[in-house]
Amino acid sequence: MRISALSLRILRQIIRDKRTMALLIFAPILVLTLLHFVFNGNDYEPKIGFVSIPETMENQLNIKNTHIQHYKNLNTAKADLSDQSIDAYLFIANNHLSLFLEGSDPTVNSTVMKRMQDAFQSMGGNEQTNNDIKIHFLHGGSELGQFDYIGPLLLGFFVFFFVFLIAGVSFLRERTTGTLERLLSTPIKKSEIVFGYVIGFGIFTIIQTFIIAIYTIYVLGMYMEGAFGYVMLIALFTALTALTLGILLSSFANNELQMMQFIPIIIVPQIFFSGLFNLETIPDWLSWIGPLTPLYYAADALKSVMVSGMGWSMISKDIFILAGFSLLFILLNILALKKYRKI
């Protein structure tokens, strides 16, 4: 009963504080919308050259929103690609369809790739054909499609970041305004305080994640292959980790500004190891940090569900690790409260 009283109080406080509530829900929506338009460049019509592609095949391909230019020989296509008058060309070599991309702009690359994929899917949805295309780049281009994968990661990041901050600050206030002392002068158990917080913020996080996820997936059209329920489940455990870590670290801060100082130390480095940048390029002596950061698992699970359409078997490990983090932080929180009351 004490736990539910605490949870109810937290929910009431959040609802009263309209600005904070707006921050938790609309800030992620705003940033994700901006990123969507910055990275996705939906309006861009790629120019693809078809080099001696049989007409029957071209009709089957049915490429949408693409400017198609026909070439009789490879060299003219190559020249046009070099001076960027086309973005890619399709040709047949040794009975294999091959795609040659200009490759210097990741946004263009991903658009071309997406159009081609859609086209091949409409042709028969045959995985075999898809895999059969040989893809070449004129320039770099190895990080192609990176931005298709950034969305799930950012969803996880926003849930983590905002819950960490709000929960941390609200527990910090509990301490600085003396309400924690008053709470501890009542017969409440320390574990009841921690679980009250977990449930109160847990309920709010479910609502927050639901709105943000619905918006990014159905309004912004973020790539979503798997089940929505899994996204919610991963987000909930991500939030739980962020919440318990936020409360824990708040005991090392004396005011709101000091709480903010944890952002560059605790939050930002996690982004680097969450898959935003290619993890394999991180030097070995530094790469051990990744598996220690909760966001690493959250991003991995969200990618598995949203991009690869994986199910429980693929994400269960990530979820259990996030749950483990939360449990560890909960225990540490109960221990940390000993500073304010010995029993």
Binding site: M1, R2, S4, A5, L6, L8, R9, R12, Q13, R16, D17, T177, G178, T179, E181, R182, L183, T186, I188
Partner: peptide, 20 residues
């Protein structure tokens, strides 16, 4: 310190601590 929750009404503060 007064140790009150400013975002809540007086009654809500009392309800909370009564439950605690």
């Amino acid at each position: 310190s007064d140790a009150l929750y400013g975002e809540l009404t007086a009654k809500e503060n009392l309800e909370f601590f009564a439950a605690i």
